[in-house]
């Protein structure tokens, strides 16, 4: 959107977006992160936790993307601190960080069915889950 009175010149400031990488363990999330970010990654802890994540700046055609590699998880019902942080960062829990502007769901193409469980939750995570029951 262009504000009234703004010129049509190429804007100098590029739009900055926070994008998280979400996926099952072993879906190749970290490899994909490395491929996208190269050597520019920085490791940091999520505030108030010892759970670390890697972050990198990535330039696309249209914007600067702050890419965040989250710990791997199988579902959005976390059972471990790492999973809790990963799910919280995706959902935009205020204690963990601002809500992401976008997400890349990483899926193992050789194992589609199993990976789709997390995908189904991620694509509709605002739907309340009635169940808090543990499943095996």
């Amino acid at each position: 959107m262009i504000a009234p009175g703004a010129t049509l010149e190429q804007p100098v400031r590029r739009c900055v977006s926070r994008v998280v990488l979400l996926g099952n363990p072993n879906a190749g999330k970290t490899s994909l992160f490395n491929m996208l970010s190269g050597l520019r990654a920085k490791t940091a802890n999520f505030p108030g936790t010892t759970v670390s994540h890697r972050m990198a700046k990535l330039e696309t055609a249209g914007r600067t993307v702050h890419l965040i590699d989250l710990p791997g998880l199988y579902s959005l019902q976390p059972t471990t601190p790492e999973e809790r942080v990963a799910a919280g960062a995706f959902k935009g829990d205020s204690s963990i960080g601002p809500k992401p502007d976008g997400a890349i769901l990483v899926v193992d193409a050789t194992n589609l069915e199993r990976n789709l469980f997390l995908v189904s939750q991620a694509l509709e995570h605002d739907t309340p889950d009635r169940s808090r029951a543990q499943h095996d």
Binding site: G23, G102, I104, L105, V106, V107, A109, T110, D126
Partner: peptide, 23 residues
């Protein structure tokens, strides 16, 4: 609300090698 999302279908080379065809 789900943020704008892209799905990366990773390891597509391995899937090809296994003869898995994904639509």
């Amino acid at each position: 609300m789900t943020p704008p999302t892209v799905l990366a279908l990773n390891m597509i080379d391995a899937a090809d090698a296994d003869g898995i065809k994904i639509d």
